[in-house]
Simulated scan of single mutants.
Amino acid sequence: MMRAKLIPLFFFLALTLIVPFSAAYHVGVNYGTVANNLPPPHQVVNFIKTKTNINHVKIFDTNPNILAAFSNITGMSLTVTVPNSDIPSLSKLPKARSWLSDHLLPFLPATSIRYIAVGNEVIATSDKKLIAHLLPAMESLTLALNLANVTGISVSTPHSLGVLSGSSDPPSSGMFRKGYDKSIFAPILDFHNRTKSPFMVNPYPFFGFRPETLNYALFNTNDAVFFDPVTKLNYTNMFDAQLDAVSSAMKRLGYGDVDIVVAETGWPSAGEPNQTGVGLDYAAAYNGNLIKHVNSGKGTPLMPNRVFETYIFSLFNENLKPSASEQNFGLFKPDFTPVNDVGIMKTDQVTKHPSLEKWCVQ
C-alpha cells in the first residue's frame, strides 16, 4: 500500500530548522524523571524558558521541587499527574480536597497549572478497581477545585490507543472497545463535555508502523498513502489517522465536539541492535515533522483546521527505563545537549550549537 519513496531525512531536518515558528506554539513536552543523572528542576526550568520555545510541560507526579521551580514563570503552564495508585481514595471528596491542599494549593497561583491528569492509561491496566474509580476521582477533584475557588485548571486522564477496538481501521470505523464504550467512555466523555475539559490520548505511530509504512509514520511523504473508502478522505501520515479514529469513536457516542489533547507522542533515537526504524534520523524526522504539522493548524482530514495541543515524549533520555528504546525518547541528554534539534530551540540557539550546524548548511 505504501507508494512513497524514502525521502532524504536531512531535507526535513533542514526545513525544521529554517521554518520560523508561528506566534501560536502548541507543542509541549513530557518531563519524565525515571533517571539518576538529571539536572535539578530549577536548571531544567531555566533551560526550557531561555533556550527553547516550549511553553507547556507535563510531569508524571506532583513533585514539589518541580512545582516550585515553575513558579512565577510567565507564559508557561504545567500539567500534573495523580498516580494510578491514588485514584481509588480520590473518588471520595474529602480525600480529593486533602490531596489538593497537600499537593497543589501551596503552589498556586505562582505556578500556572493547566491540567490535572488523573492517572495514566488507566483503562490499559485492566484493573477493574482503578477503572471503576477513575471517573469518580475526576469528578471529586473537579468539585474540590470548585470548593477551593480555583479556576483555570481542567481535570482529565490520558488514554492509550488500546482503548479502541481492533476494527478502528479505516479511521472512520473508529470505536471504543466493546464493553467499555457505553459503560466507561460515554460517562467520561459526558464529564468532559460538562466541564469543558479535553479528552487526552497517547498516539504513538512508532508502535504501529511496519517497514513498508515507515515514511507514513514519520510524516515523510505528501502522497496519499491510505484512502478511507467511507469518508473518501486520503491520509498522508499515521498520526492523523490515529487521531481521526479516536474522533470517530467519540462521535459514535455523541461527543465529537469534545477537544482532544495529545498527552504523549514521540519516537526513540536509539534502541535494541537492529531494531527497525529506530535511530537519530528517524526520531528527528518524526518529532520535527510532528511539530510543524501541529503548529500549522491544518488539523486532520476528519478534523480540518483544528489545533491539537501536543506533548512530545520526552524532555530527557531516562536511563532507568526498562528497555533501550524507552531510555532514548528524549529530545535532550541530561547535560542539555540536544539529541537532535527538532525545531524547539530558540532561533539563536540553533546557530550557536555546533552539533546543529551541519543541518543548517545546505
Rank of each mutant, 00 (worst) to 15 (best):
N55Q: 14
S323E: 14
R194V: 09
L90R: 01
H293N: 11
F239V: 05
Y25H: 14
K49Q: 15
L315G: 08
E318W: 02
G166S: 06
T142Y: 01
N222Q: 10
F199M: 03
D228R: 11
T111M: 07
A284G: 15
T231R: 13
F209I: 01
L13R: 12
A241T: 04
F219Y: 07
V262R: 01
A144I: 07
G254Y: 00
A148K: 03
G256Q: 04
I153K: 08
V82T: 14
L134N: 03
L331S: 09
A137I: 06
G297W: 04
L141A: 08
F329A: 13
K5M: 12
P268Y: 03
I59K: 09
D257A: 11
L93G: 05
F191A: 08
D281S: 09
H353P: 00
N193F: 01
T74W: 02
Q242V: 10
T300M: 04
I291Y: 07
M238P: 01
F185N: 09
V163D: 07
E121W: 04
M1Q: 09
V163E: 09
N220F: 06
N237C: 07
L164W: 06
T79A: 15
K196Y: 12
Y282C: 13
N193H: 09
D244N: 12
N328R: 05
E318Q: 08
P322V: 11
L93N: 08
A249E: 11
N46T: 06
V230Q: 12
L15E: 15
L320V: 07
T52H: 01
F219A: 03
A4H: 02
A117L: 08
A270N: 15
P109F: 02
G119W: 00
P88E: 11
T79Q: 12
M250P: 02
V45Q: 12
T236Y: 00
H103N: 14
R3M: 07
L93P: 06
S154V: 06
P322H: 08
F191C: 10
I123S: 06
E272Q: 05
Q349P: 05
G299R: 03
S89Q: 13
G119Y: 02
C360K: 11
N234T: 15
N63V: 04
W99N: 09
A96Q: 09
F191V: 10
F47W: 03
N340W: 00
V19F: 02
A324V: 07
S156A: 10
N55L: 09
L6Y: 10
N120M: 11
L108M: 10
F209R: 01
E212L: 05
P304M: 08
M175L: 05
S156V: 10
V339G: 01
F191H: 11
V294W: 06
V27Q: 05
N237A: 07
